[in-house]
């Protein structure tokens, strides 16, 4: 794989939550870079500040120290080059809007010509396999389909990077496998960079081109592991590869050690 230009740079990021009963250091000292077009998974023990990290990267939280840079520009607030997919799809989609309007809402302020806006919506709903449900309301759909709507909303926004915060933690195992393949497909067909946070080690190895293993709080990057599995991945054959087992065992060991420390 050719070296990619650096797109996202997180440098000595630190986040301390201040409270009257003492400060809590959620993120200790965290640095990594991500190339354009990369699919990086972040995995770490539960309660290690993964969501805090994502919020700092997305500009929703101000880091206590360090910088986040996107294409060489410091991130100080939400930017149009990033789109988020939250774990709680039920609370991230607006139940009073139809599926189509939910996807449309972030595009309204982008000042796109009507025809282009419509095409973006149609294409992204098509890409997640929900063209037929455009007129439904989110609560009429299953959990997996609702998360597809959230993904469609994010890709219609045309971000350079898609940030996903444990997006499949609340759906059943079979739906989850389908959604994982959808993420791989979108990454390959659209060339969008994806930063995918999960607590599921198998998921991180199956999805990622690279896996960042985090330590427990105060969080640092424990290891950056390149996933040298073939690009064509498949739920059955890929997960049965000896290399897959090696990699997951390796990550698992790291997490165990991170927890023990």
């Amino acid at each position: 794989m050719a070296e990619r230009t650096t797109m996202l740079r997180v440098d000595h990021l630190r986040k301390v939550y201040e409270s009257p009963r003492g400060d809590v250091e959620a993120i200790g000292d965290l640095s990594f870079t991500m190339g354009a077009g990369e699919l990086v998974c972040i995995v770490g023990p539960s309660g290690c500040g993964k969501t805090t990290l994502l919020k700092c990267i997305a500009g929703l939280l101000r880091p206590s120290d360090g910088v986040v840079e996107m294409d060489g520009v410091r991130v100080t607030g939400p930017t149009p080059s990033m789109a988020l997919v939250f774990q709680e799809y039920g609370r991230s989609l607006y139940p009073w809007l139809t599926v189509r309007s939910n996807v449309e809402l972030p595009l309204r302020h982008k000042k796109l010509p009507r025809a282009r806006r419509d095409r973006l919506i149609d294409e992204s709903l098509e890409a997640v396999g929900l063209a037929h449900a455009a007129k439904s309301h989110p609560w009429q759909l299953s959990g997996g389909m609702q998360q597809r709507v959230a993904i469609a909303r994010a890709i219609a926004y045309e971000p350079e990077i898609l940030i996903m915060d444990e997006p499949f933690a609340a759906v059943d195992a079979q739906t989850r496998a389908d959604l994982e393949d959808l993420v791989r497909d979108l990454h390959r067909s659209r060339g969008v960079s994806i930063l995918f946070v999960t607590h599921d080690i198998d998921e991180s190895v199956y999805l990622g081109e690279r896996v960042l293993v985090l330590s427990k709080s105060p969080t640092r990057v424990e290891e950056s592991l390149k996933i040298d599995l073939p690009d064509d991945r498949d739920q059955i054959t890929t997960r049965a590869l000896p290399r897959f087992t090696e990699l997951r065992t390796h990550v698992y060991g790291h997490i165990q050690r991170a927890k023990a420390r």
Binding site: P78, A83, L84, F86, P106, H109, Y157
Partner: peptide, 9 residues
């Protein structure tokens, strides 16, 4: 937060 992230006016 969704509205923040997508910079809804």
């Amino acid at each position: 937060e969704t509205a923040d992230a997508f910079r809804i006016t």
